[in-house]
Every structure is written in structure tokens, then in C-alpha cells.
Write a protein that binds this DNA or RNA. Structure first.
Lengths: 352, 352
DNA sequence: AATATTTCCGTGTACGGGCACGGAATATTC
DNA sequence: GAATATTCCGTGCCCGTACACGGAAATATT
């Protein structure tokens, strides 16, 4: 319990060198003969020495930078939560001689991403958090980070490459599967005939659909359990808000009576007004993420369930895990962290 | 951004005294004249001085004790999670010259509680976490803590008194209400006629029922939405496991066909075997808390939904908030922290 | 062999605050 | 008014690490 704390002096004595030498070994500052370095490492090992965290903090004058690159923020939308989590994580480590910096890019402009990457690298970070949307740009970035031996953590989405330090995100396929299960739960097969999926109109040449796996999970569940069911898409364009209502109007008017309505991205709030105007006791509506507007729709009743995650935790923990790495060289046991999928209804949304 | 950090020397200089005096004022160690103390306080105020956290950690040799008093642990049951959270919280602050100690008591023996209290007080804690079951014993404890000016935090349950430092727990009434809503969701009134509530046989002279508010919330929802519905209780006695199955057997055999089964404590797993032996597609079973055995029952399908919380977080955060109080005199903005009620099904239990 | 370079490593001080110690100033006692 | 007690407060060392500095030893250069 009350073990004597091993200090750098103990190590120095055991290795037969001075504390300066031990320090040089500890920080790879060079200027140590191979023989001495070996003795020191052995002493550290045997004594099980670990530096006093706070003495280091006190003595060091350098600030580490943890940088984050993510899309421009639109108030109330998804990336704002990622940003908030990053900021919160930054506050938590601000006492530890760590500062955080954020670099934004336009999610529709690959060049802006490259530019943000350059700025990020210029800030000489000791760790990086990446919310990637552009694959090739991200490849370039991580290649450079790898070359500089800077650890990086993906949030939201990861690239399938081997060198990232950690990843935080939602299990997309499973979330779609869960969505379908919740949508149809306690329904017999014959009851579920038509499902309306509201999607975002997007230019496929520019970006891949980040919810594609979620959709796959959804469809698989439906195929397995309701093979007769039709899943019909309607596309809305948030860039032209005035077109949303007419589009929905037309879609819902002409088709069958849709009792099941889903959106796979975080923007179910975009159709909340429409749904509220056409109330239907029987209708089951499910969306994703606890954006304020979505929660409001949940409270109002136009949305029945939100599948949410503690989005902020992704980036908050990313900062935390990077800080641990930078300051104490800690490496997490497993590097893929999947967020829990929370089921939110009007009744349990309160303390979320 | 790069403001010069104010040190104790700056304060001393400004107040025209030595750092020793400033230090005495800072720690209320007395031996300072009213005049000097005033000057020092003024200087601190004006310079907006705050001590360097890590320097003080480095310099101090004293270990603070955070103590926890809670029932004996039965592996896999509720209090184990509270204990684990406390331990985890303790690890998180172990670098901060804080040690944690746990004192157990027999939840059926008020004397053992008093004894544990005495031991706890003898450990001279700087902060205390209390999982209270005995009201009057707890009153005695907190009276003493108050006299000694030791902050204490309730977890799980709180006493209605004014001086606790914080409280972490589940909103019991609401959780019962939510339970009823989930049990009956998407059902028409005429469908819900009979609900089976499985309860624990207990000696009322010894202990009050900790789930009483949850039951109230449940009943209120049912009364509001299904006024014709019968809620029937069956009592099982975990002290005599062999009696459980016959009891249930008899209850379920003679009554109506129960499609709705609920338990308000964390022990739904006790009836999972019975339910598995008498499968019923239509049956809806809801329990509380993500004990391993409960999660297993959820996976197997004998339980449909668990209303869970991050139980460990209660005690983990209790430690954290006490550490902040002890080391930095921080006081949380609001002292009642209600856990979020998570809805767990087979499909989303995985990363919980 | 004398000098210059490089490699290696010990010393000393800074970081900011806790606290023991003892001295000075003031108050109390006889 | 001297002796004693009490109150008050400054000094100095300690905590464990980082790093600048400069010196010694080893190696290279002439």
C-alpha cells in the first residue's frame, strides 16, 4: 500500500549514473552511450519506475498541441456535438500543459480539406483527431502524420488502414438493424407492407453516403423478417428548404398509407413539421441522433424514437486517449471504440 | 492566452508578507493576524490567484481518504456495480494523493451498519460516499460527518435532509412510469387486462422497500392509461431459491394468462429460467438493471427489455466530485444527479 | 604530440507550493 | 521591569522532474 515511490534518483543510483542521464534516456534526448542507456533501461525496468506525473508537469514548460480537423459547424447539427466534445475534452486536459486547436473545412470542398490539413500540420501537433469525409485527402494527411510519428484518432468514420491510434464511432450496420427492429417491433408480418425512407438528395460524384451501412443493416432486417415489405425512398434537398414540404406532400399523397417512416441521418427534424401537420396515431417514426431539434420533435410526438449516442463522447474520449498517449505513453487495450446505441423516447429523453 | 501564472510569491509580495503567511491563510492554518490575513485575501482576490494544482500535489505528503460505505457484495448483483464504480473512481484519482477505502455492512443488520460507520469514521476520511439502507443509522452517520465538516455524497438513495454534498441515483418514479409505458406500448386499452408483478418477499419490520416509488410510477401510468387493468403481485423469496419455481408455477397456473410480467428490482434474472421453460411469443417481460445475469436473460429472449443505467457511474462520479471538492474546493452546480434511463434490448445491449 | 571535435554525462537551478522550525514582536505574569 | 508565555510570521528545505550548462573523456585532426 504505502510503497516508497521510486524517483529518478533511485534509478540513477541503481544504474550508476546521474539523474541527468536517466532523464535523457527517458525522453530519448540522445547524448547517452549505448552502455549507459542499457543500464538505465534495465534499472527502470527492475525498479518499476514511473515518473511522477505532476513533477513532470511542474517542471516542463512546453505546451503540447492536440489538433482536430472537422467540417464547418452548423448550429444544432451533428458536427457541433463533435466539436463540443472536443472542446470539453480540451478543457479537461488544459491543466496538463495541453492546448487544443480546431481546423475546419467545407465538407463539399476537397481543396478546403487539403488547406485545413496544411494548417493543422503547421500547428505542429502532438496528436490529431480526424473526422474524415474525403478519403484521398485523409490518406495524404495520415501519411504525413505517420511520417512524423504523430498519433491520430478517427471519430465518426474511420479509414480502413492499419495505423490509426484509435477510432470512436457508432456501429452503423447494427444501428440500421436496430432501427428496423424497433420500427416493426411487436408487429406481425402482414402488418408491415410499406416503409417510407426519407433521404437526402446529394451529388454522388462528390461524396459517398455516410449512412450506407446503416441502410444495409436496415434492409437486411426487413428482408429477413418482412420479405414482402416495400421500402420506398423519397429524396429531399436541405439546400432548398422550401421544396421539402411539397416533395413530401407529393410522395405521401400518391403512395400507400405509410405507417413507418425512417431517416438514416441525423436530420429527422427536417420532416418533423410535415409529420406534425399530418398526424397519425398509428404511425411509427424513427430517426437518429439527439440533436436539439430532433429531441424537440420527440417531445412533441412527431417522432417516436431516436436512436442516439453520446456523440460528444467520441471526440471527448479521443482527446483523452491522445493526452494519455502523449503524456504517459499509454496505449488503449483495443483501439476501436463503438458507442452504445441509446433508444430515446419521449419518456426517457430527459436526463440524456 | 499566455498569461503569466500568478504564484504564491506574487501574492506575498503584493500583500507585503512572506509566502509562509500566504500559505497559512490559504489553508486556514491560523497563526495569522487579522490584519495580515485581510491583506492576503485582498491580494489573492485582486491578482485572481489560484494555486498551482500540481505543485501542491507534489509538495504535499498527506494522503486524503475517500471512504465508501455500502452493503456486502454478492457477485453479479447490484451493489457490485456500485463497488466497481467506486474502485474505478478511486483509480482515477489515485495519482492525486487520494486513497479510497470501502466499508461493508450487512444489509439485514442495523448493528453491522453502525459498526461499519464507526470504522469509517476512524479512517478519518476527507469525503464519504454513502449507499444508505438504514435511515436512522444513516442519520447518525451524517450528523457526525456534518459535525466534522466532512462532505458526503449519497448514491442510489438519498435521505431527505439538507446537507449532503451531492446525490447520484435513478429517478425511481419515472423509471416505473417508463416501464409501464414500454410494457404496454403500441397496445390498445382492451388488450391489457392483467399484469404480473413479481416481488421480493421481505420482512417489512426491517427494511423499507427501495422500489416503492418505482411501483408508484408504474401504477400511475397503468391507472391513467389502462384503468381496467389488474395488477397482480406474486412474492418470491430469494433466501429460499428452491421455492421460487413452485411459487411462480402456482401463480401463473391459476391466474389468467399473463402477457405482461414485470419486476421492479434488479432481480429479473431470478425468474428467467422459469420464463424460459414456459415460452410465450406474445409475452412482454421487463426488468431493471444490466446485471450480467439479466443481460444473459435478455440475450436468451426470456426478458424483452431491461431499463438500465450506468450504475457504476453513480459511485465513480461520486468519487470524482468529492476529489474536486477536497482538492480544489469545487462545488457542483446542482447537487442532484439523475442517471439516464437506458432502454436495453437484445439488439442494443452489446456496447453498453 | 598537441590541438580540435565530438560524445557523453554530472551539476545546478527552476518549477510552485507545503510545512517545520525558530525568531521577533507583543501580551501576560509576578 | 524582568521573566515568561503567546501570537505572529519569515526562512529554508523538500517534493520529483526538465533542461541548460559546462566539464571530462574519447576520438579525430593536424
Amino acid at each position: 500500500m504505502e510503497e516508497k515511490k521510486i524517483t529518478i534518483f533511485d534509478v540513477a543510483a541503481k544504474a550508476g549514473v546521474s539523474k541527468g542521464t536517466v532523464d535523457r534516456v527517458l525522453h530519448n534526448r540522445g547524448e547517452v552511450s549505448r552502455r549507459s542507456a542499457e543500464k538505465v533501461r534495465k534499472a527502470i525496468e527492475e525498479l518499476n519506475y514511473e515518473p511522477n506525473f505532476y513533477a513532470s508537469l511542474l517542471a516542463t514548460r512546453k505546451n503540447h498541441v492536440i489538433a482536430c480537423i472537422l467540417p464547418d459547424i452548423v448550429a444544432g447539427e451533428y458536427w457541433e456535438k463533435i466539436r463540443d466534445g472536443f472542446v470539453a475534452g480540451g478543457e479537461a486536459v488544459s491543466n496538463l500543459n495541453i492546448v487544443t486547436r480546431i481546423f475546419h473545412y467545407d465538407q463539399y470542398d476537397a481543396d478546403s480539406f487539403a488547406k485545413a490539413c496544411a494548417e493543422l500540420l503547421a500547428s505542429n501537433p502532438s496528436g490529431v483527431v480526424i473526422a474524415p469525409l474525403f478519403k484521398s485527402g485523409t490518406m495524404n494527411l495520415v501519411a504525413e502524420l505517420r511520417a512524423r510519428d504523430i498519433p491520430y484518432v478517427y471519430v465518426d468514420t474511420k479509414l480502413e488502414e492499419g495505423d490509426y491510434f484509435a477510432y470512436y464511432g457508432m456501429p452503423m450496420y447494427k444501428s440500421g438493424y436496430l432501427c428496423a427492429a424497433l420500427l416493426t417491433e411487436r408487429c406481425r408480418e402482414e402488418q408491415v407492407k410499406d416503409i417510407a425512407v426519407v433521404r437526402i438528395h446529394r451529388d454522388k460524384s462528390r461524396q459517398s453516403d455516410p449512412t450506407i451501412n446503416r441502410r444495409a443493416g436496415f434492409n437486411d432486417f426487413i428482408d429477413e423478417n418482412f420479405p414482402e415489405c416495400n421500402v420506398n425512398n423519397v429524396f429531399i434537398d436541405p439546400a432548398h428548404p422550401e421544396t421539402i414540404e411539397p416533395t413530401l406532400e407529393a410522395f405521401f399523397a400518391k403512395g400507400p398509407q405509410y405507417k413507418y417512416v425512417v431517416m438514416f441521418n441525423s436530420r429527422i427534424h427536417l420532416i418533423a413539421d410535415f409529420l406534425a401537420k399530418h398526424p397519425d396515431q398509428e404511425r411509427r417514426v424513427i430517426g437518429f441522433d439527439n440533436l436539439d431539434a430532433n429531441v424537440e420533435a420527440l417531445r412533441q410526438g412527431s417522432v417516436g424514437v431516436l436512436i442516439a449516442q453520446h456523440t460528444e463522447d467520441q471526440s471527448r474520449q479521443a482527446v483523452s486517449v491522445l493526452a494519455d498517449c502523449i503524456l504517459m505513453h499509454k496505449v488503449p487495450a483495443n483501439r476501436d471504440f463503438y458507442m452504445h446505441m441509446d433508444i430515446l423516447t419521449r419518456l426517457n429523453v430527459e436526463n440524456y
